[in-house]
Design a protein around this nucleic acid. Structure first.
Lengths: 211, 211, 211, 211
DNA sequence: AATGAATGAGGATTCATTCAT
DNA sequence: AATGAATGAATCCTCATTCAT
């Protein structure tokens, strides 16, 4: 099948990506130290030697794997931002739903988070790059929307503006839950998102009795 | 010093705890797979053989270490709960501040969370026990306070009552941040807690103009 | 039970023997190298330390165990020899049946043989002592009976007189069989003994037609 | 020497056999448990890792070693059987001499027997395979010769026909002797074989006085 | 480009032996 | 006499890495 249809040259060009995809699965399943390059090779359909042809060390495989898996999300995010429209509370909701969808409910993204947490001490630059490329820009967009919403009178000038992460942090829980519990303890994510947004907009205090 | 002052029997009684304390430091620093029992032994001031006298395998050392480190917190929590008092929004704040204080700002607790995330797949019972002993009861207390507060008219009956975790989840961020960034990217936790609580009570919507 | 009936002093006197009995079972089951003194201790109902109180090293335990298990057979053999009586072919049969009974069909004796074969290179003096105390005397008695039988005209002066072991060697097979096959491949020992003795007396050649 | 003369591929093809030959020497000298794979490697001129490249565990090395050492004898035996000729008592003697020669006087075969006895409990399938491939067929040939000899009037119909092993069992002694005594207690094997065969044919009973 | 044989340092685990009590 | 905590050398096995082909 693939042998006749894809030229040898083309297959060669895809080798590194195939190895990194395989590496993602193995590292996600076992962590950095407990993953054997032998298993990565087997999963990628090559031999250990081939991995060393493309990557210098196991560390390098890990680093490039994180890069390889993360990169595609960036463009997607930019595109999404560009399309944001409508009233600011709708934009805010969109941003948050986007995070739930792309980060919390997406297995690949979740496992990357797991790896950043578990191996972050060994690869601090990876974590920092992630902040600069994903988290920072996301928070920045969030802040812009909230600021504009305040200006437009849709939001009040809450202290959370300065600590914008407090606004979306409930979404983190949906990211961590499956990392901790796997399939155990499932939750109704739709209801959770609604609860998050309701709390975000209205808080817990009872509405003052309108005159 | 210890040889003359402490009797052999006394030292023996303390050995397992000493080993588990050392194990915590090593596992927290390197993760399960990358930690060498030899280093745990050295840190505990014993030899490898001694570890195997008390624990059957490296896995067992890990499991018992988690248990050993976590246990003491339980009593503390129960005691805190018993002392909860005052208006319900104050109790709610107390609970949340308690979580920030004991979980987010405490290095040991944070590292336990890291280990549960990174090694949870290998030790699912540990994660589940943690839920049953810590997370579940904490959420339960939280729910009780909110329910009572609603009854008392201090809180509105928000949908978040059913998904109580949404209420305290911003605190998770303060738990994860140092796991990811170490000492880089510090944050003003006091301000963050205030923002969290403000959002919790008031939301982002502008207050309706009072009559 | 045993505590009240047996005095402590008496139990102490039996300790070494209990240890050696336990050692026999473990060494027989696993061989010298694969046996753990810890298991010997457990089986004997004492601790490792106690073994070292009575015996200097694992090697010593092994050596003394062989001695301890073998010794009792010697007296038995002497007693049996003294009672030998009747025509010489009957005495020969008795001797051979004795060997089958005490060596081939007795599990303990068989396992001692296994140990002498498997550990003989490590403990050559044990093997040699065994020859001097058991095999040599047994062959000597065999030779005496055959010689007397020749004198009495009951046996012919076959060359096997000088290599007396050829006479009883079929019995060895009954010793080795269970060492190799355990309970697999059982054999009718009674019939085997009869075949052995028939061959011994009559050989395979057809009887010359009597005048 | 070997590096320039033998190609890598050629050396590779011989590696497993070289390792198994080395394994034979070490296991024969020390038994299974007391043999260190490190020593096997050293003797084979490779490193520990190489052994594990070809064999999964120490057990596997042992099993394949037994196979590797035993196999070549099988063809030899078949060839010998095909060439059997002459009167039946001559064939019987040939068979028995063959056993003495190939099993009792051959160091390699003897040590395999030692290993089957000492490690048979751990590797019962090895013992059973040995019976099926070597012992069983050998006994079968023996029986055929004796049966044909009876038919031809060269042998009498002794009860030993049903327990054919009684006929060759004296040869076992020549197998076991060196296992137990090494070079101590040498024996004149030629004379022993003669005595064995004389007994086999004529027994111990005095010849009836011919008319 | 790719293979896979080979290495060797490293780490988990075992166990004979010691010794304070 | 007896215990059992403690040791540390020994040994199995793993795996990142190299390199001849």
């Amino acid at each position: 099948m693939s042998a006749p249809t894809r030229s040898r040259a083309r297959r060669k060009a895809e080798r590194p990506a195939e190895i990194l995809d395989a590496a993602f699965e193995e590292f996600a399943a076992n962590g950095f130290a407990a993953t054997r390059l032998e298993d990565v090779a087997k999963r990628a359909g090559v031999t250990k030697g081939t991995i060393y042809f493309y990557f210098q060390t196991k560390e390098r495989v890990f680093e490039e794997m994180i890069r390889h898996i993360s990169q595609p999300r960036l463009a997607e995010f930019d595109h999404f931002i560009a399309a944001l429209d409508g009233p600011f509370h709708a934009r805010l909701r969109s941003l948050i739903v986007f995070f739930y969808d792309r980060m919390a409910e997406n297995r690949v993204a979740r496992e990357i988070v797991r790896l950043l947490i578990s191996e972050g001490r060994r690869f601090p630059e990876l974590v920092d790059r992630h902040y600069e490329e994903f988290i920072g820009p996301f928070l920045e967009r969030l802040r812009e929307v909230v600021e504009a919403g305040i200006e437009a009178g849709e939001f009040r000038a809450a202290p959370s503006l300065d600590l914008i992460e407090v606004i979306f942090s409930p979404a983190l829980l949906m990211n961590l839950r499956p990392l901790l519990f796997g399939d155990r303890r499932p939750i109704d994510i739709g209801a959770y998102i609604d609860a998050h947004f309701d709390l975000l907009m209205n808080g817990l205090s009872p509405a003052p009795v309108a005159g």
